[in-house]
Design a protein around this nucleic acid. Structure first.
Lengths: 215, 215
DNA sequence: AAGGGTTTGTGCTCACAATTACAATCCTTC
DNA sequence: GAAGGATTGTAATTGTGAGCACAAACCCTT
């Protein structure tokens, strides 16, 4: 059976809410409660989960810990993923310094840049490598995910190289509609696009008219 | 007529591609070409544009400059938008230093933080203000967009304050399912969620199996 | 000026995701 | 241990967006 990508995109949301509940010591949660917590309908949650199994108990709800473990397993969050950052300008450095990846099992193990002034520098316990050695180094020490934080003009090039090195998941901060072959997964982080689409609503909704707020 | 939010989300993509073409000196482009450039079907582009008018010429395509101007006007990109950044840790500083906002008409005019060590500092030509004065300052000098780069625990609080100050568009980097009232627009930037959903495919697609790559 | 080759705009169809609604199941209480 | 209240899992329905296909319109060439 083929699971809709939208469903996969929602699962991490569920795990996050469940983690919070778990830390608060909650044992059981209903789809109802989880739904209001996340701004999603209870039926949506139940249906999403039903793609993978039957995790709840009628009349009671879901065991927080058990469901969390299941989702971790389903998403592959019960292991470590190795990541490389390409480009350590302001953005790249912020990414290297972000503490939110490691607790979720995503660890940055390599960092690259093309600027000679940056190569060899030690940033956040990582020695910046020469971007020209990208291929060589990644073939020796493979990573699961590539994080692209280079200028737009060379982004496609970097992405192509990553793909050549067998990287199958790419998180791109570059403002280009990058193309990747089948079987390679690409997610883009595009704050400017987000702003631009919100501008439309700012412009067209006359200050306090009903309008859906979508994230 | 009500325009689907997905359509609005795609328009900025079109403007970006058109800008590139315009800089290259191109006069005319077909939906076909624009489509392959963006990884979108030509019919999709034509249909999206048809919500707003008839901008093309049969047998010829779209005048790049004219369509670009139209889209800029539709999206409200033909004016300046004022933004405030709340939280100037590593992430916030990277946002302040990002050069991609200004060329698109989005200008950061205020920056806030709660840390006394940061208040008063001059970063990227902006004096960091006390986050406790957020309300006071924003009421005097209103902004259109709030960029939230604070820790998760206080993010909802900050967002509530922004809303109270009349901010109707919020770009949140905080990893929480923030809630905003009707008429306020929220977009979230969530690299961790993106990674987590890609982990599913990494785990479940046996290295070079056909699989759609969605961004 | 006529014809051929393009490309737009759009009605229609199809596919898929969200919602509804309800039977089945479970827990708790009396 | 039976009854009542709650909640799940899912079949059926609804809603919506994407793709197809074609008539209308346009340009260019001869």
């Amino acid at each position: 059976m083929e699971i809709p990508p939208v469903v996969i995109d929602r699962l991490p949301l569920y795990t996050r809410a469940l983690s919070t509940l778990d830390e608060e010591g909650r044992d059981v949660v209903s789809s109802q409660e989880l739904g209001t917590l996340l701004g999603v309908t209870p039926a949506q949650i139940r249906k999403d989960l039903s793609y993978f199994g039957r995790f709840g108990k009628q009349g009671r709800g879901y065991n927080v810990r058990k469901l969390l473990d299941e989702l971790h397993h389903i998403l592959g969050l019960d292991r470590q993923w190795r990541m490389a950052v390409i480009g350590v300008g302001k953005l790249g450095r912020a990414i290297l310094g972000y503490e939110g990846f490691t607790p979720q099992g995503f660890r940055i193990v390599e960092a690259f840049d093309a600027d000679p002034k940056r190569i060899g520098q030690l940033i956040e316990n990582l020695t910046i490598r020469d971007a020209n050695d990208l291929e060589k180094i990644l073939l020796k020490s493979p990573v699961d995910v590539g994080i692209v934080a280079v200028p737009a003009v060379i982004a496609q090039n970097v992405i192509d190289t990553l793909v050549k090195c067998g990287v199958r998941a790419i998180l791109s901060y570059a403002p280009i509609p990058a193309r990747v072959p089948q079987g390679v997964y690409l997610k883009r982080i595009e704050p400017v696009l987000a702003l631009q689409s919100m501008a439309y609503y700012l412009k067209n909704s006359p200050r306090s008219t009903a309008a859906a707020s979508r994230s």
